[in-house]
Nucleic acid binder design. Sequence first.
DNA 1: AATTGTGAATTCCTTCACAGCC
DNA 2: GGCTGTGAAGGAATTCACAATT
Lengths: 238, 238
Amino acid sequence: MKVEKISELTIDRLSIYLRCLELLSKEGVETISSQDLATRFNLNSAQIRKDLTQFGEFGVRGVGYAVVKLRDCLRAILGLEVSHNIGIIGAGNMGIALADYEGFTGSNFKAVALFDNDQEKIGRKTKLGIEIYDVKNLKDIIKEKFIDIIVLAVPASVIQLVLDQVVAAGIKGVLSFAPVQLQVPEDVTVKIVDLTISFHSLSHALINSGIRPNNRGVKADEEEKNLVVICKEQERSS
Amino acid sequence: MKVEKISELTIDRLSIYLRCLELLSKEGVETISSQDLATRFNLNSAQIRKDLTQFGEFGVRGVGYAVVKLRDCLRAILGLEVSHNIGIIGAGNMGIALADYEGFTGSNFKAVALFDNDQEKIGRKTKLGIEIYDVKNLKDIIKEKFIDIIVLAVPASVIQLVLDQVVAAGIKGVLSFAPVQLQVPEDVTVKIVDLTISFHSLSHALINSGIRPNNRGVKADEEEKNLVVICKEQERSS
DNA sequence: AATTGTGAATTCCTTCACAGCC
DNA sequence: GGCTGTGAAGGAATTCACAATT
């Protein structure tokens, strides 16, 4: 068996395919072709097939894919046959919102604990009843509650420090909301959700489509050119 | 002047470069080489130079880049010379957390309004004083408060409906937290922050590093193989 | 007839390596 | 000497197009 390295992009798409298959199976659809799946997103049918065949041959030529079977296979590939308990560090607005995040319901991800170092907050519970623990007890609570994923919702200034403790506690999967490069051992996976990049990217798109905030209406074609000119001028004047 | 299409990946990296330059300029560093920048993240110095030269020639051969100048150019390219007012639709946990998100402070993004259709919530304010408006008044408030970016923090079931109203109100930049494919006209940019994909991806990584939740310790090398076998067996048995 | 699985072609992105410049 | 800007090489991801299969 080939054990080709599987790309992150493929994994992300599997998640998207799975979402659609969950829907289809609820609708009672029994079989779907890669072409049908492809048109539901803006994807290429060959890409779907390529992605899937990296894990086995799930389809039937001339027929398509059995929805329920493929769904179960994707669940297995994505490690969703076991449930995951999530601990969230940082009981600020973001941490608490995530703890009670409705996106978890119906999935096998479950927020089970919040952590903070603010004595005011420790001992309190969220609306959905998730307790805030002292981050000093991180390691113990992780074991006690079988936490395998930690979400970091703490200020950027302390995040590496916190992460080191998380790693020391044996956690191998981390999701961070701070826009900061993080250092971890090779066997720990860190995903960063960087809202700053998303907003900057939106801002760039706005500028380039010629829409100024307040709708002052700058012409689109001229825009990128103008920017370069601004920069080139600055370059010369320095 | 060439008007080559600039890739999304490049734009995202510009945001990262900018973040570092903001830091460097605060530290009083006046000049930096692409090599120095590259080692600060795990990037290739040629990539940084390639990214930058798509917008002009900002560097000085033999010297490097002037930190403050490059910072200002990146700000201009990313459309950060004007400030952006953000409206958030959905005054649930997530929406409110975002409204008071500390990541905005010091940036020129500012949450200025929340929207909801729950009469209970309308008229209330967040801790930081951002008011919740009736989504019926969306268009008016957008104009009144010069909102140019809308964040969607509403349930997936109604998101396309809400988005249609947002587009009708003339908004060209949208950030969505719902894991759902969205339809918009060509001139509207939608960014999706898909936490489900992030968690699935983490889950996959955990499975593949041989770490089971609860640390039951499955051997790593065997894992992907096992999954395929599971799937192939299901395939045969169907 | 229809649809998968896949080598080949293509496109896109990254990295190398060096000419050009300060 | 040191560093940028860039053509060329290399690598990765996507798409095409068709043989294989039911």
